[in-house]
Design a protein around this nucleic acid. Sequence first.
DNA 1: TCCCGGTGGAAAATCGATTCATTTTCCCTC
DNA 2: GAGGGAAAATGAATCGATTTTCCACCGGGA
Lengths: 350, 350
Amino acid sequence: MPRKAKRKPAGKLPDIRAVAAAAKVSIATVSRTMNGSPLVSERLSKRVMQAIQRLNYLPNTHARTLVSGRSRILGIIVENISNPFFPELIQSFEEAAVARGYEILVSSTNSDPNVLATCARRMLERKVDGVAVMTFGEEEPVLDQLTHRGVPIVLAEFKVDDPKASTILMDYSTGIHQAIRHLVDLGHRSIAFLAGPHSLHSAITRENDFRAAMESAGLELHKNWIIECDHTLKGGVAGFDQLNKHAVRPTAIVCSNDMTAIGVLRAAYMHGLRVPNDLSVIGLDDIDFAEFTLPPLTTIRLSRADLARAAFDALRLQLDDSGNPRLQREFLVSTSLVVRESTAAPPSAK
Amino acid sequence: MPRKAKRKPAGKLPDIRAVAAAAKVSIATVSRTMNGSPLVSERLSKRVMQAIQRLNYLPNTHARTLVSGRSRILGIIVENISNPFFPELIQSFEEAAVARGYEILVSSTNSDPNVLATCARRMLERKVDGVAVMTFGEEEPVLDQLTHRGVPIVLAEFKVDDPKASTILMDYSTGIHQAIRHLVDLGHRSIAFLAGPHSLHSAITRENDFRAAMESAGLELHKNWIIECDHTLKGGVAGFDQLNKHAVRPTAIVCSNDMTAIGVLRAAYMHGLRVPNDLSVIGLDDIDFAEFTLPPLTTIRLSRADLARAAFDALRLQLDDSGNPRLQREFLVSTSLVVRESTAAPPSAK
DNA sequence: TCCCGGTGGAAAATCGATTCATTTTCCCTC
DNA sequence: GAGGGAAAATGAATCGATTTTCCACCGGGA
């Protein structure tokens, strides 16, 4: 005996068949219409659209994904969502994605490689079309999982030798040179650097660019004045404390990111040092907060919007143009100094 | 003539058939094993699991969703991802969700009703199993779209008369009473309130609780001292400026959220007022930053972790226990004062 | 010897779309 | 009016799982 035909429950959502029936066309035509195929006449297209409106029909993306192989979902993995840099980045990435009909899957690794592996797995299970890995380092192990399955990825500050991988490089050098130049012009000679964790490629690049800028300004690097911190507020406080232990102290501190700089501001305050009169501080990122610290932070701007757009474009290129062997796979994002009030002439120059 | 059978491309991902073949069982058994059916013996189950491992098989969630009707995706809609309160909330929500095998879809409305509608639509298209609407107001129009299609939702601070909707209420009253009490104990009598935008239910609740606390402390409310701001840094600055225009000024300011309070800190600094000596400031939320402002902010803590967990539990209850007519549909999250250094005795009391 | 309950298998229906191969429609020309 | 060819619309296979139905097998009890 044939299986009993299932009656449709009353509250059933309209599917493509319902639309086809309502518009008196085949389901193939409905599908074509929705996908903007040129093979549908104006007249029919209109009729189908009306039926869609009338029924308040939403296509089932899962069914769509199953057959087409594309999910129209992009993943974005960030290092730490509690660092304001990243929400701003996610926001821009989301806007770019949604504008082109992509959905995004966000996750944050907190610099834990295990979490990163889990993220990659989650992305794979949901069949993302591409992943922006915005962790600025530590990403090696995860790459294979994704690229081996043919998922395009884009990395920040890290080149991978895989045709499916693109890279976004930051031109820190320009911004950092401007910062050093700014300090030198104010009269500073003793400049310290609070670096980020060495596990991050970006932290190392920033530090190297700082060294280069110091050298090209003809300034000597005091050995104790480059300290590895962890890019957090607490880390900035700790870094300052460490700097403060030594007898000779810098008159200016450049930090690997804004959070560190804000930590320094806090620590300096606790030690009774006035910024910028007793100490100049420069950050890097220019998060929204930087304008509202006390005093407002002089910092090197790294645009989240630019970075997000570059990441999205890199993925889109891989997706739309994957045949092309001469695909652009490297992108550059620039930086520049924003002068506010945390920098001034050093005390000695008064 | 039948369509030509398609050969499998070499690099094909393993599917359930491949696993079945590798484990020498039927696909039904593989499915049963993965879904923890009791009809599979220990022995076989182990064999299947091994095959899954060996092939590095990942089930296709889209295929699964299509037939089962459940996507195991939860949506979370926040007001503004650039306010650090929300990333911290998302982080906790994500952890809870991922721990139970759910994926999450994040989006941020920026208080724009049109964006909210788009978000709802995106969630619907992706067939989310439930949505946490953490916008603290403005949500009416969107509700129908979701609940009408049977998607459970949980709202912050807003009750809806729908069996699919749950609510999380914040007990601001306790924290705000503590704050007023703290100020009164320090000697303050003149206390202003920088409210949030009246479009937000939470902002109105907070304001009302402030009024109530003032009254129960026997303090008079100065008419010009309740000002509507917008919960941003800039808004805090503007609010302070407005307060400052009048001849009589408060000795303490309570703010509807931390961002506003941080804006006030900044504005006070620009006007040469020292906090807390000249002016006491209290925030609400206790975002991570609050500990690192200058001076560290006294604030009313509203735990993101508690809120996220409540939101997740509310949805899970709706999902797992949807038959139950006596479902818990209201949850309460508490608040409490955290005293740091932005409050002290008023100048006159010195 | 027959039957029975408990396991697991094989096969088919289903979910809701896309898309290929095919048929139908329509228009133009001779 | 027939024939040809492009354009428009259709039918059916397909994606990868879940789930149901029916069946086979095995050991044990009556």
